[in-house]
Design a protein around this nucleic acid. Structure first.
Length: 758
DNA sequence: TGAGCGTAGTTTTTT
DNA sequence: ACTACGCTCA
């Protein structure tokens, strides 16, 4: 972390400042709109950049232009992204363009820049400069402790829910004394605010900040000390923001404050790709930009360089179903390409099989697997694909699963380091106090907590006290005393020893490595391997603190595996990426759009789901293949599925549809030829369908006979019972689909075969 | 202290 | 189906 912005950054850089260097060499290839977005450096600019319109290119070129033409030193620019990956990419590209070391510039994620600012002025918000940044796991444990302290039943009021409420407040920049809404009023009998208050107190006493605090404390800081705010306002002559549609309110307020100095802020975003409202992002930030920055120029990038016109056409028509959007008309000069294909399939297994076959065909046509992706809605959907791909020997990688620094053994090792860096870090100390086993169980830990609360001291201090007293006996006392003396030694060692050998010593002395060596489980060898990797990774860091800052803010995915492999990931994970060929399985009502989104977020959530579908389609350069299954095994239960409404929203002119099944909607067609053949392996699946026809190669060869309700069982107004949603009244009937107004769950469409007369 | 068992909850994810 | 958690009992 370069923290020297008072020195190095403000020293005049005679090479660049004031020197007009022609930048035309690297932006001659930009189109008119892109060029305008790069050149308009005076005043606020909003760049609405559709999918595949060269957004990143514009952003990097703009920054390079500002630096190259001497409009600002690197240290006078602020560039924010959401992910470390995006920040790194931007850094690389700008450095390549500018060919000059960019020491001291402010380019990074919102969180890393906010942390950098906060460390400088921590005392103004009641923290010390070396505060710990807590991750979600720590936060959760802290919240649990809070609930316990308030005697609130954690079963009834889960810490996770409390965390979600508090995080939403923080997303909006609301400290406990600023909360006026009733957001949390139905949680814990209205004691949410009290819990939030205590949680913040606890964080302060631990000298810790959670992710939300980083931004929120910045806001507090800026409003408490106008001098500091002024300093940054003056400093940042140019501000650039990537993925602006993903900013939450507190990030927005933060930007707005900082931009008030020079008013040169350029935000790049696409309202159609806003898919993070569920974690506090406000698309509204885009919509209000012109209001907040009067005279702002709005530049639209609408020429798509990525996809064929069929893919672009399909995606554009789909997203046009959203009401809540600014509206863009993407166009392309690329060829028509293939139509988007839509497959209806029997079940998830068939879906995985068919996609596997398609990929093998593409592969034999010379298509690189690295440029193929399977994009799913939810993490668990990757499984059938993994199983199938393993079976047929198709190389694949799943992106975005467990991250390196989230692994149990890595977190343990880091906890040791955290205690060394900050003896007061109770959360870290608690984590490893009995790992490996030292005879310090729940009872002993409770004693420590009592002492620490009574004395207002840290757990470590309490531990010192307790080992001096007679409270603890036998193995427990020796175990704890040993641990304490180990820590004292390690702390001394940390001053003189390089990080890799320090951690090696710690893991040896503590018996932590020994613990895993003795462990006979399958995972143990992998864990030891990971620990070795950690030791290696530590080589890159000068100080313990710089390493800890890195891991708390730059918890990146482990590098993706080398080789030519199909990419399997969630739609969210695919944002910003592109592939030749994209498979989009699981387009079924309830799965995509996801039921939970529909239940909780209504129309807004539905539109967000649709944007997700849009993001999925627009990842494809050459081919996009959508599929849905008639039956799906979810959480151990089979259920019949309806094709997603998004499937029917795809325009015929850009789509080819094939189906191995008839969906329920088709069952009411009179001329279909049903046979009642019972196929045992399907019968076992307790499919509740009335009659179901599968047609393959124009031949109906399979139908499952399951008991059907007698005609007239269902009439509008009749009361029915549904396994999942309970009692309700039928409001509409459409073939085998019923629209039911449920007493608890509200208005829903359900399968007739799923309900019983009540 | 730890194994064994029952229960509940299973979208998306960064920092 | 699978996991994570909390509780009971040896």
């Amino acid at each position: 972390m370069n923290d020297s912005f008072d020195l190095a950054e403000s020293s005049p850089n005679t090479q660049s400042y004031g020197a007009k260097i022609s930048a035309s060499s690297y932006w001659s290839e930009l189109n008119k709109d892109q060029r305008k977005a790069v050149e308009t450096v005076d005043g606020p600019v909003l760049v609405l950049a559709g999918a595949g319109t060269g957004k990143t290119r514009v952003l990097t070129t703009r920054l390079a232009h500002i630096l190259d033409s001497g409009l600002a030193h690197p240290g006078e620019t602020l560039t924010v992204t959401f992910t470390n990956k995006a920040a790194r990419e931007m850094k690389d590209r700008v450095e390549r363009l500018v060919r000059r070391p960019m020491e001291g510039w402010y380019l990074g994620t919102f969180h890393s820049i906010a942390a950098r600012v906060l460390r400088k002025h921590a005392e103004l918000v009641g923290l010390k400069s070396n505060f710990t940044i807590l991750d979600t796991d720590d936060q959760l444990r802290l919240l649990k402790q809070g609930l316990e302290a308030h005697d609130i039943d954690e079963k009834r009021w889960p810490a996770r829910s409390l965390g979600a409420i508090i995080n939403r407040w923080k997303d909006r920049g609301l400290a406990p004394d600023q909360v006026t809404d009733t957001e949390g009023s139905d949680f814990a009998n209205g004691r949410t605010l009290e819990l939030y208050h205590d949680y913040q107190e606890r964080l302060r006493s631990l000298n810790a900040a959670d992710f939300g605090d980083l931004l929120m404390h910045n806001l507090t800081l800026f409003s408490n000390d106008k001098g500091v705010l002024r300093e940054y306002q003056d400093r940042f002559r140019f501000i650039l923001v990537d993925e602006y549609q993903d900013t939450n309110v507190s990030q927005y307020l933060w930007l707005r404050l900082l931009a008030q100095g020079h008013r040169n802020i350029c935000c790049v975003g696409d309202d159609d790709q806003s898919i993070y409202a569920w974690r506090g992002a406000e698309v509204g930030n885009i919509l209000r930009f012109e209001k907040d920055f009067p005279g702002a120029q709005v530049i639209r990038l609408e020429r798509n360089y990525r996809s064929t016109s069929h893919i672009l056409g399909a995606a554009s028509d789909l997203i046009a179903h959203n009401r809540d959007r600014l509206g863009k008309t993407l166009w392309t000069e690329s060829n028509e390409g293939e139509k988007v294909t839509v497959h209806g399939l029997w079940d998830g297994e068939a879906e995985a099989r068919v996609i596997g076959e398609h990929i093998e065909t593409e592969r034999s046509d010379g298509q690189a697997l690295n440029d193929i992706a399977v994009l799913v809605r939810a993490g668990h959907q990757t499984r059938p694909f993994e199983e199938r791909f393993i079976q047929i020997g198709l190389p694949y990688r799943v992106i975005g699963v467990m991250r390196f620094y989230e692994r149990l053994e890595i977190r343990d090792a880091i906890a040791y380091l955290r205690v060394i860096s900050q003896e007061d870090d109770d959360l870290a100390f608690e984590r490893i106090i009995n790992r490996p086993k030292r005879g310090i169980g729940v009872t002993s830990l409770q004693k420590l907590h009592v002492v620490s609360r009574a004395n207002g001291c840290s757990l470590m201090a309490a531990a010192r006290d307790l080992t001096d007293s007679d409270e603890l006996r036998g193995a427990t006392r020796t175990g704890l005393a040993n641990l304490i003396s180990h820590f004292d030694r390690w702390r001394n060692l940390s001053a003189v020893q390089a990080l890799p050998s320090l951690i090696q010593t710690i893991l040896d002395d503590s018996g932590y490595l020994e613990m895993w060596r003795k462990d006979r489980s399958i995972q143990a060898p992998g864990r030891l391997e990971n620990l070795n990797e950690l030791i290696g990774a530590l080589d890159e860091f000068e100080t313990l603190d710089s390493f800890l800052e890195h891991i708390s803010l730059v918890m990146d995915n482990a590098e993706t595996e080398d080789g030519d492999m199909v990419n399997v990931m969630t739609l969210h994970g695919a944002k910003g990426l592109e592939f030749d060929s994209v498979y989009l399985p699981g387009w079924e009502e309830g799965l995509f759009p996801h039921q939970r989104a529909l239940d909780e977020g209504g129309l807004h959530a539905l539109e967000e789901e649709r944007r997700l579908a849009y993001v999925g389609l627009t990842r494809a350069r050459q081919r996009a293949t959508v599929s849905y299954a008639a039956n799906r095994n979810l959480f151990g239960k089979w259920s019949s599925e309806l094709p997603s409404r998004f499937v029917s929203e795809l325009p015929e002119e850009h789509v080819t549809r094939t189906s191995e099944i008839n969906t329920t909607a088709d069952l009411t067609e009179p001329d279909l030829d049903y046979q009642n053949i019972h196929r045992p392996d399907i019968g076992r699946r307790r499919s509740n369908w009335g009659r179901y026809a599968i047609r393959q190669r124009n031949r109906t060869y399979e139908t499952i006979a399951v008991e059907n309700h007698a005609p007239g069982t269902f009439q509008i107004g009749k009361r029915i019972f549904h396994q999942k949603f309970g009692y309700g009244k039928i409001t509409d009937i459409d073939g085998n689909k019923l629209e039911v107004s449920f007493e608890k769950a509200g208005l829903k469409k359900v399968m007739g075969s799923y309900v019983e007369p009540a």
